[in-house]
Design a protein around this nucleic acid. Structure first.
Length: 291
DNA sequence: AAGCGAACCTGGCTGC
DNA sequence: TGCAGCCAGGTTCGCT
């Protein structure tokens, strides 16, 4: 499910509910998700206070008042929902706020103010880890993570440097989390369409011979930022599983120009949107205006 | 080294 | 209606 905009949406939903609270109890319903939960997971969290909630790539990172960080990844189908003490409060209950199948509620964090934060993940590709704060940068999960696309580093020059010498298709390289962190299948397809670049083009074609950026690289860097910022503002894209923490749907899926639109006309040139497979994943693009 | 396909797991949709 | 097959927003492992 979740690419950078969806994870950021979840972070913004959880932050006001969690930060400043302590974990009063942890309701752990199974021993593992994608990986086993850490040893003594509930004991290590209980009574810890959440000092902050950050995002790095597609990871959520809760800063705890002890020496540890709680790392959470949503995999393909993970979601959090917030249940305030006394039930869902303000206004009418949001339709669908509660997943049909609570059998996939795997963890509930019970906070000191009575709020419950429930993690649901049907496919269980998500996971949680506890790592010592000093080990964060060198930790295997994070040491090879690439730049933040909404940070300062992403510009044409950086793209050209990252892509120089790469013969793999632009689409595959943009999905490589060790280069740029947070892009996934949807937003790569959408950014390439906005930039008018073919997903099949060799990544190195965005660098000049001297390694500097060409106009394509500069344009691509800009539209990556644009599409991610617009998606965050829309609360992410809800195709199947993604919900905001109050149960509301994201709505950026209504703004897709190519993703999931195979055989439809391109909104820019009227050509037909095509679907191909690259590295085992669906790619959507317009053969007419993406070169 | 880089690039690609398979695997992890469940649910939803399509087509016979 | 039922069932087989295919597909899904991510990441990692193993084989060229």
């Amino acid at each position: 499910m979740p690419e950078l905009p969806e994870v950021e949406t979840v972070r913004r939903g959880l932050e006001p509910a969690m930060v400043g609270e302590r974990f009063a109890a942890i309701d752990l319903r199974r021993p593992d998700l994608r990986f086993p939960f850490p040893e003594r997971f509930t004991e290590r969290l209980t009574d810890r206070r959440v000092e902050g909630l950050r995002r790095r790539a597609k990871y959520l990172i809760a800063d705890l008042d002890g020496a540890e960080l709680l790392i959470m990844h949503l995999g393909m189908s993970g979601s959090f929902r917030i249940e305030k003490a006394g039930g869902l409060t303000h206004g009418a209950p949001l339709l669908g706020a509660r997943p049909k199948n609570s059998a996939h509620d795997h963890v509930a964090f019970e906070l000191s103010n009575g709020t419950r934060i429930v993690y649901n993940d049907p496919r269980r590709f998500g996971f949680m880890q506890l790592i010592p704060r000093p080990e964060f940068a060198a930790h295997p999960l994070f040491k090879n993570i690439g730049i933040e696309p909404l940070g300062e580093e992403l510009d044409g020059a950086t793209l050209a440097r990252l892509f120089a010498g790469r013969t793999a298709p632009l689409k595959s390289v943009l999905l490589d989390q060790t280069l740029i962190a947070g892009l996934g299948n949807i937003y790569v397809c959408e950014a390439l369409h906005r930039a008018g670049l073919s997903p099949r083009r060799p990544a190195a074609s965005l660098a000049r011979k001297d390694g500097g950026p060409n106009k394509r690289a500069t344009l691509l860097a800009r539209v990556i930022r644009d599409v991610l910022n617009e998606a965050v503002a829309a609360g992410g894209s809800s195709l199947r599983d993604h919900r905001q923490t109050d149960g509301a749907l994201g709505y950026f899926q209504h703004s897709f120009r190519v993703y999931g639109r195979d055989n439809e006309p391109c909104t820019r040139c009227g050509g037909k949107v095509r679907r191909i497979t690259q590295s085992g994943r669906a790619t959507f693009y317009c053969g007419g205006c993406q070169r």
